[in-house]
Amino acid sequence: MKKYFFLLLIVLLTAPVFAQQAVQYSQYMFNGLYINPAYAGYRGPVNFHTYYRSQWTGMPGGPSTLALAADMRTAGDNVGLGLNLMSDRVGLEKRVYAYANYAYRLRVGWDPEDRLAFGIGLGFIHSGFDNAAARTEDPESVNIENSFLPDARFGVYYSTNTFFAGVGVDNLISQLIFNDNNGSTRIPPVTQYYITGGGIVPLATDILLKPSILVKNANNAASRAWTTDLNAAVIFAEQFTFGLSYRTALSSGKQLSESLKRPNSIIALAEFVAAGQFRIGYSFDYALNRINNQVGGTHEISLGYSLNKGTQRVRTPRYF
């Protein structure tokens, strides 16, 4: 009983903190569709990707995320289509995201692989609260209602054979129509911004360096919470990727504790590619601030598959 009461307090008392944060995702560099709809079609004809993230494994009921993405490039080569689903759970609160994405890709250089893409995603966000799992001494159920909100996302993505940069924005509609005046305690959607960039630097034969950066911003009326991932990975023979990320978090508001404003984690990650089609990735997040002793580390595993068929093939390897 004490365990469930503790989880309930975590959700209710720290709701403003969770509301400021985007769903954490350490392997964003392996598939950009989760944070940018303009990424749809980048990898080629048909692609599937999924990941599972278990955060703060030392805390009962810690955050967990399960996501699935599928995208394809049309025969005309200028249009990308994609679908992404995500289920995110924090304590007793669960949120489901679903989007259908469309990207239009323009050639912007002499090389046909130099593209500037504009993307939009339309879908919905469903928020719910697991009253059945709440165990308190108060017999009355917790008054947190379910909500179903339409939503949209937008993105811009520029890529060449050796460089990429993008901007994505989520929760464009849901946060505008959310109504919190009914007396219940619900966590409202928050507009999320993602800024990414990176490149490929040859080091030796069959050895490539892939530095990249991700800046995330969650904005609401109370504060602005920023998270920055600095990443460096090495690719061996286009099959093995090993890397490290350094994540910092800070807020310009007053709703994050001092310990969370400090540099908060380091991430080790790896990916293996088989036959140019199958991908498996793993990452481990280790918190550097005081919260690590209470909540433990974070594990994330991903699986991907690319289907290349017919004459519609990718000319160069996809490193991003």
Rank of each mutant, 00 (worst) to 15 (best):
F5G: 13
A19L: 11
M29H: 03
M29E: 07
Y34V: 02
I35M: 12
N36E: 07
A38T: 01
G44Q: 01
F48S: 14
R53F: 00
A67K: 02
A67P: 01
A69N: 07
D71L: 08
L81V: 09
G82N: 11
L85T: 05
R89A: 09
K94Y: 07
A100P: 04
N101E: 12
L106Y: 13
W110N: 15
W110I: 15
P112E: 14
R115E: 01
A117N: 04
G121A: 12
G123P: 06
A132H: 10
P139N: 01
N146C: 00
L149E: 08
P150N: 14
D151P: 02
L176P: 02
I177G: 09
D180S: 09
R186C: 02
R186D: 04
T191H: 07
Q192W: 05
G197I: 01
G199D: 11
G199F: 14
I200D: 05
I207E: 04
I207M: 13
L209G: 10
K210Q: 12
K216G: 05
K216E: 04
D229C: 12
E238R: 11
E238H: 02
F242K: 03
L244P: 02
Y246H: 09
Y246K: 02
I266S: 09
F272H: 04
Y282R: 08
F284Q: 08
D285W: 06
G297Q: 08
I301N: 00
G304C: 03
V314P: 00
P317E: 05
R318D: 06
